[in-house]
Design a protein around this nucleic acid. Structure first.
Lengths: 206, 206
DNA sequence: TGCAAAATTTCAATGGATGCAACACTTCAA
DNA sequence: TTGAAGTGTTGCATCCATTGAAATTTTGCA
């Protein structure tokens, strides 16, 4: 309390360093040996804390991978909540997509770590499951935000259908179209096409 | 190989009985004590096999819950593959939805077990994650099937976007609109509305 | 009946996760 | 500056899912 927000106490700084050490050790080991093959004991050893301490920083091994997902959700909810008066649904959703893409570009994580993470999430079944679960919760939150921003215009079910269709289309299209040599721009094109399909409807594909 | 009840050998019949015993014991215990709270040892004991034997019937504890998902996927792929010549995309997808609904009604599981399962999947985070993962794989398979049935008409990415939008819309709408007192028919209405939205496009909501 | 294959059991080990109590370090105020 | 209060760490014991291997039992069949 006594310290201003910029300068944290020693305790706080130490915690941050430990946290960072755990993340870095983990990503390094995951990259070298794979996710399943790396044990918590090894990660903790590299970060120079006890195995037990690991669990006061992360609830689980998976949590290491998804440690920064919250803020992205906040951002997305903010975009929806910031609907301009009279702005159309499609307008809001397009802003949502654009902002998300931007946000992906300026990540907190380094490029290398981001790549490792993406590979792991696409590769390890347990992480895939966890990622989908997180994405699902995100969608629920977005649907609720949408329902609020369009109070009286969209029912909860309709808001949810809209979010589900949009994100469902993008997610499946991107993953289904993935190949080892895909560039980021190609992926972006696929995503945009998926948005287009969701917006104009499946009927437009015939 | 199949359990055509009359002439299977003793070995086969016994295996089927054990499998069934495991499923029944598990659902009973899950219902009484919850999923996490029930140990494999207890399930195995109730079914009168050793804990180790459990794993020659199911790959994991989760698998008990999702043991019959494969056949539903086969069915769905079959529906898509059975596209009538010239049949439109929306036509195929509607058949897919209808058949899935029917299929849900005549389940292998008893009503009580089905209810327990649904509750658990919606409730237990680990099962939720597993369910979403399974559903995701299903969607990928369906997208591929669609791509084949519409060879030359739809790219892989477009097929995936279509499936993703359709199932994404239904999934989120149903879950978001869920309440303890929802009847099956109400859920069905929500699902149909979501299909409508996905088919006619998000633009139609404005 | 007796042998081979299949299924089951027993036993041991790994690794993630949690509760707990002792201990060490920080913070803060007197 | 110092000591009480709070917070973070640690070792330890334990639970549980999962897997491997070897030993044992059951079933199918010659």
């Amino acid at each position: 309390m006594q310290y201003s927000s910029g300068m944290a106490g020693l305790r706080e700084r130490k915690k941050q360093r430990t946290r960072q050490a755990l993340i870095e050790a983990a990503f390094r080991l995951f990259d070298e040996k794979g996710f399943e093959e790396t044990t918590l004991a090894e990660i903790a050893a590299q970060a120079e804390v006890s195995t037990r301490t690991f669990f006061s920083y992360f609830a689980s091994k998976d949590d290491l991978i998804f440690h920064d997902t919250d803020q992205r959700l906040e951002m997305a909810v903010g975009v929806i909540a910031g609907r301009a008066p009279g702005e159309t649904l499609v307008g809001v959703l397009h802003r949502l997509v654009d902002t998300s893409v931007e946000n992906t570009l300026n990540q907190t994580l380094g490029k290398k770590e981001a790549a490792v993470r993406t590979r792991l999430i696409l590769t390890e079944p347990s992480l895939q499951a966890r990622g989908l679960h997180l994405l699902f919760d995100t969608q629920l939150r977005l649907a609720r935000a949408l329902h609020e921003s369009f109070a009286g215009e969209l029912t909860m079910a309709e808001s949810a259908a809209a979010i589900g269709a949009l994100i469902g289309a993008v997610k499946l299209a991107v993953v289904a179209d993935l190949r080892p040599d895909r560039t980021f721009d190609e992926i972006l094109d696929t995503a945009r096409r998926a948005v287009e399909i969701a917006v104009s409807g499946l009927g437009s594909l015939s």
